[in-house]
Simulated scan of single mutants.
Amino acid sequence: MADSTFLSESIIKTWKTGNRITCYLIEHIPDEVWTELVPGYDKKTVQMIAGHLHNARCMWLKNTGNKAGVTVPEHVDRYSVSKKEVLKALKVSSAEIIKVLEYYLPLEKNVSGFGLDVVHFLSYLISHEAHHRGQIIMVCRQLGHKLPEDVTYGVWKWSKRAKEAE
């Protein structure tokens, strides 16, 4: 049987790594792409996708964080938020997500407001962000701003990003 302390620490470290990967990508989005329209959409921009990542975390914090005593951060304005503001907001929302994870880890019950256990919740959050990271990488290519390979491969370098997240 796995050591529950090790497992709990691994879950928190996994979230921190996933957050670092999201931030790493946003740090490397070319400024000229930030507010360009996503091909196929009338109003959506990379800026809006990045803002959505934080705002979705806020929604989940509102739904799941009551018992964990979290502070739900303010949403960002997806239409005007800067990269610097998104990165700052992601740092805040990540810290609050950790509080939810830490609260539910020892309880061995479903996350209230989510309906499944903490590992499913973590997996959902990371999958959601991975989906949007892929969108951002594709949009950059579609707009003629293919990201350097060290960035596109960098989102897959979990060991390196994990060290950066410590």
Rank of each mutant, 00 (worst) to 15 (best):
Y79L: 12
M48K: 12
C23T: 14
E149M: 01
H52E: 07
E32F: 03
T22I: 03
I21E: 02
M138W: 11
K88I: 02
P148I: 09
E96W: 15
G18Q: 04
P148H: 03
F6P: 01
H120A: 09
I12R: 14
G115F: 09
K43P: 04
M59L: 13
K84T: 15
I136R: 02
W60I: 00
K160V: 08
E102D: 10
Y104Q: 04
S127A: 15
E74A: 15
D77I: 09
K109C: 11
E74I: 08
T14L: 12
S159G: 09
Y79I: 04
A165L: 09
L37M: 13
S127D: 11
K163V: 12
Y153A: 11
I137Q: 00
Y104E: 02
E129M: 01
V72E: 15
G115S: 11
E149W: 03
A162P: 05
S127M: 14
K83M: 10
K67H: 11
G69S: 08
I49K: 00
R161A: 02
S93M: 12
E85P: 05
S8D: 11
Q142S: 10
L53R: 09
V76Y: 01
R141S: 12
S8G: 14
K43W: 12
W15M: 06
K88E: 01
L125Y: 04
S112T: 11
E102A: 15
Y103N: 10
A130H: 11
A68V: 07
G51R: 00
S123M: 07
V92P: 02
Y79P: 02
T5A: 14
I136K: 03
I126S: 12
H54W: 05
I126Q: 12
R78P: 03
G18A: 10
E74S: 15
W156G: 13
Y24R: 08
T22W: 02
G65I: 00
K43T: 14
Q47W: 05
Y124R: 07
C23Y: 01
A95R: 00
Q142C: 08
L90H: 02
Y124A: 05
L37W: 08
K157S: 09
S94A: 13
H120L: 08
P106L: 06
K44V: 11
H28C: 00
G65P: 01
T152V: 13
W158I: 13
G115K: 13
M1S: 14
E102T: 12
G69T: 09
V119M: 06
C140S: 10
G40V: 10
T152Y: 06
T22D: 05
H145T: 10
P148Y: 03
T14N: 10
I137V: 15
G154V: 11
R133P: 03
E108Q: 13
L87S: 03
K83A: 09
L116R: 15
R78N: 11
M48F: 07
G51L: 02
E149T: 04
E85T: 15
T71K: 07
K109R: 15
I26W: 00
M1P: 12
Y103K: 08
E96H: 10
F121P: 00
E96F: 14
T14R: 04
Y104M: 06
E74F: 11
V76D: 03
A50C: 14
S94F: 04
K163Q: 13
K163W: 13
E96K: 15
K62H: 14
K146D: 06
N110Y: 05
E32H: 01
V118M: 02
V33Q: 02
N19P: 02
I137D: 04
H75N: 14
M138P: 06
